[in-house]
Each structure stands twice: as structure tokens, then as C-alpha cells.
Design a protein around this nucleic acid. Structure first.
Lengths: 213, 213
DNA sequence: TTTACATTCAAACAGGCGTTTGATACGCTC
DNA sequence: GAGCGTATCAAACGCCTGTTTGAATGTAAA
């Protein structure tokens, strides 16, 4: 016999299982590469469950997305209260952990990163609610470091340089795996990469600032 | 009546048209997103032409790839004979033009860049014959700038930082288009981006060199 | 227990994909 | 011009995709 609470969430459990499976498969295979059948198989649900609970594959993606971890990271970064350079280091570290750490439960970033290249119906929402705010956030941070002399276009390109370096390790993973087969992206390696990107970028930003001063 | 030369190249003309169309569609839609039917439509050939001339879609991709422009670029870079920093600026400029300039006839880079994210049967060949040599080439160039004190892992991460910045503008194009709808990647803008990446990276490399000195 | 509703299920559907087929048209050799 | 091998063609094949269907199941109210 089920208790009342369990009964109430009977279908919500399969909903939750579908969402979990969807995040897993989407982050591994991308939206196009993922199949509804495999998601249902991993969720131990019937093949029609996705369309029953979410209307379509697109609807499933829309509900599987969750921008909370990203926003929480930004909020925590502001509250850290360190100097701008230190906050940039912190930001890059957290971001790389989201992108690369397999143990990280929030595969949101990994899903989004996959969608950057080939658009899906959800990309507009992703850009509006997650990417644009994040670029703006990082823009302000870089502004604090670079000062007021650097132009808007130059500042934007600095932000692009930082995101480009970070995303490279995710986008080009199949290539990197072939180039350096022995390399494993464990926690230590991720932190080393994040440290490099931070120092590399800080040097670039400060040089630009000095140039314009 | 056709001349003998024209007759001889009768089927080779459709072969060439197919290859041109394939490079176009592959670079625009990626390998998975491209369809044999559309390639044949653009080449004004029958739907069975691809399999007749190239055996399969995979075979078409393999023959559509051409690493000559990349190798030519590297060779020209060595022969330029400038100082390492200047050669790095030159390399990034040429690379960005290959990646972004729509007028650039060699869409090879654009095809390859698309394949980085999700592997195809041709990725091993691409990595072996194009990407690995290019990483090696850029590694030597960075070594000249950074000196002997920086470690191998640090050097490798510098190379990754440079490629990451460059590839970002291609991988994230759908996102960038939404973030900055007005921005056009004309020749002038591409050169500005290339200049930024070069100076940004040179600062990062030199800082690392000073740190280890 | 009976009724009504929400959820699950196996099966099929419609469409797109890469690929194959057998016939047709073509160009060259004899 | 007859014969032959190559290239092109429309059509179909087999497979996989997201989605729909209608029956079967289970649950909660009357």
C-alpha cells in the first residue's frame, strides 16, 4: 500500500525520472543526438511518456533547463566581496567545474554549452535568461579590472576571450581526447586549467588597461 | 558537340560540383545536419550521385576535406621570418580569416571546426593530419615567445587558450548573433578580433614567461 | 461496488534519412 | 551503325525519428 504522499506524486515521480534522464542524455549527446526512446529507456518509462508529460521533445528540453545554479554562482561571486581579480579567478573556477566536472549534479551548463553551436527552439530562451546575463556579469567584472579607458568593443572581446577559453575544453573534448589520450579531467586538472585561464586572461586585460591609460 | 577534354571530364564535372556543394553544406549545417539530398540538389545532380561517385556520405566528407590551405598557411608563416610575436599575430589573423570570412574559398577550416564538437568517422583523420600538426606548430611558436622555463603543460594550455579564443567566434556564432544582432563579421571586424586575440594572448604568454624567469 | 478520471502501455503512424535498384540515356570503340 | 561500358535517373527500400492512438491499467471519489 502506498501512503497518500506517495500516491499523490505517482506520476510526478516518472516526470522527475524523465527530467533526470533527459538532462543526462542531452548533456551527453546534445539535443539533436539524443533520442526520446533512450531517454524513456533510462527513465524506465514508456515511449509515449515524454509526449504525455511534456507535449514534445522540445517541451522536455525547455523544462529540463534550469538556470538557478548559474544565477546562484553569480550571486555568490558578488557576495564573496574580494577584489575584482580574485572574483574573476573564482568565477572561472566555478564555471569550469560546472562545464567539466562529471560529478557536478548541475549538468545545465553542459546542456547549454552543447546548444551553442547548432540552435534549437530553446536557444532564444537560453540566451535571454542565462547567457546574456552572464556576459553582462562578466563584462562588469572585467570593467572593474580594466578601468574606464577601454572601449566597449574591446571589453566585449575580453569577455569573449574568457568564455572562449573556458568553452574550448568542453566543445573540443573529442579532439582533446585524441590529442592527449592519457589526460584525465579530474578535479585537480580542472583547477589547474581554471587557474591558467584566469592568470592568462588577467594579463591580457591588464595589458589592455595599461595600453589605454 | 563536346571536345575531347570536355567529354573526358563529363563525370568529373559532376564530381567536382558535388564536392563544392558538399563543402558548402557541410560548413553550413555540419556533417549530421547536412543531407545528401540537399547536396545533390545544389550540385544539380541525381540523389544517387553521391553514392555512385563516393560510395557513401562518409566517403564524400573524406574527399571533401582538404588540408592544403592549412599547411600552406603554416609554411608561409615560417617563411615570413618575422619575430615570433609577429608571426603569432600573422597566424591568428590568417586563421580567423579562414574561420570567419565567408568570401574565403577554403571552407575546410569551417567544416573541421564544426566537427570538433560531435565526432564523425573522419575526425580521427582530421585530428591526425590537420589539428595535431597545427597544435604542434603553434606550440613551437609559443615556445619561442615564452622561453624554456615554462613547463609543457603550461605551454599546452597557452595553445588551448589561443585556439579557444579563435574557435569561440565560430562555435558560438548562433549565440553571438543573438547577443549582438547588429554586428557583422566583415573583413575589418575580423581583423580587429584577430588583433585583440593576438595582443591578449601575447600578454598572457609573456606574463607566464616572466613568472617563471 | 461502481463510476470517472489520470496514467501507462504496446503498437502503429507519418516523415526524413542514407542507400540500393533496375531501367534509361549517353559517349566511345569497333 | 552495332555493341559496350559508364553515368544518370526516378523510384523504392529499410531504418530510425518524434509523435499519435486506443486499449488496458490503476487510482480516487460516489
Amino acid at each position: 500500500m502506498m501512503t497518500e504522499a506517495q500516491i499523490k506524486t505517482a506520476s510526478e515521480q516518472t516526470r522527475a525520472r524523465l527530467l533526470d534522464a533527459a538532462r543526462e542524455v542531452f548533456s551527453q549527446h546534445g539535443f539533436q543526438g539524443a533520442t526520446v526512446r533512450e531517454i524513456c529507456r533510462r527513465a524506465e518509462a514508456n515511449g509515449a511518456a515524454v509526449n504525455y508529460h511534456f507535449g514534445s521533445k522540445d517541451g522536455l528540453l525547455a523544462e529540463a533547463l534550469n538556470f538557478a545554479p548559474l544565477k546562484a554562482m553569480q550571486k555568490a561571486n558578488v557576495q564573496a566581496g574580494d577584489c575584482p581579480s580574485m572574483r574573476l579567478r573564482l568565477f572561472i573556477r566555478e564555471f569550469m567545474l560546472m562545464l567539466l566536472d562529471e560529478k557536478n549534479p548541475s549538468s545545465q551548463c553542459q546542456i547549454m554549452a552543447r546548444e551553442l553551436a547548432d540552435p534549437t527552439p530553446a536557444l532564444d530562451k537560453i540566451v535571454r535568461e542565462a547567457i546574456a546575463p552572464m556576459h553582462e556579469f562578466l563584462g562588469k567584472l572585467v570593467r572593474e579590472i580594466a578601468g574606464d579607458k577601454v572601449g566597449a568593443a574591446e571589453l566585449r572581446r575580453c569577455v569573449h576571450s574568457i568564455f572562449g577559453q573556458c568553452l574550448f575544453y568542453r566543445h573540443s573534448q573529442p579532439v582533446l581526447q585524441r590529442l592527449h589520450p592519457r589526460l584525465r579531467y579530474d578535479h585537480k586538472e580542472i583547477e589547474a586549467i581554471a587557474g591558467h585561464i584566469a592568470e592568462f586572461s588577467l594579463a591580457g586585460i591588464k595589458r589592455l588597461a595599461e595600453e589605454r591609460a
